[in-house]
Amino acid sequence: MAEARSAFDDLPGDLMIWVLIVSELLVFGAGLAAFLGVRITDPAGFAAAQDHLHRAAAGVNTVVLVTSGWLAALGAQAVEAGRLGRGRRFLAGATVLGALFLAIKAAEYGDMAAAGIGIETHAFFTFYYLVTGFHAAHVAAGIVVLPLVAARARAREVEAGVAFWHMVDLVWVLVFPVLYLLR
């Protein structure tokens, strides 16, 4: 029996990467929704806790990660066009910025730990550490994945790796305003 061409075939990258991306978005979405829900029960406590965060560092990190995503997109374009060297350089740049993001994040965690703020300190920080920690783990994974796909420089794989990286980017752009800015 001949299979009709299904919507699956038209997705860029591998089907699996899209399963992953949708799953991740559901998890982060649910995490942020739960955060907003619990926040209603204690607006003052959440606002006070939020003042302990480093808004400026997180703002810089947002720029870093978005730039990294832009470089990754250029890298994928270059590889697709067959310009492998150029593609690899862009992907390397994206990876380095990813590492910079983690370094800034680590400094932020260090400062908060020094101030005695842990995951059990307040419901706000439970969400803060869970969501940003889970996100940081994905940045770390991306730092491994990007060089791997860059080394082989096959368009399909690069596209999948970069799709993952855009997801990590997108999640941060959602997390940042909700956790750091929302009053």
Binding site: V27, A30, G31, A34, I119, E120, T126, F127, Y129, L130
Partner: peptide, 10 residues
């Protein structure tokens, strides 16, 4: 630890 309540639920 209490954070499992959120990890587990989600």
């Amino acid at each position: 630890p209490g954070y499992w309540q959120w990890i587990g639920s989600i």
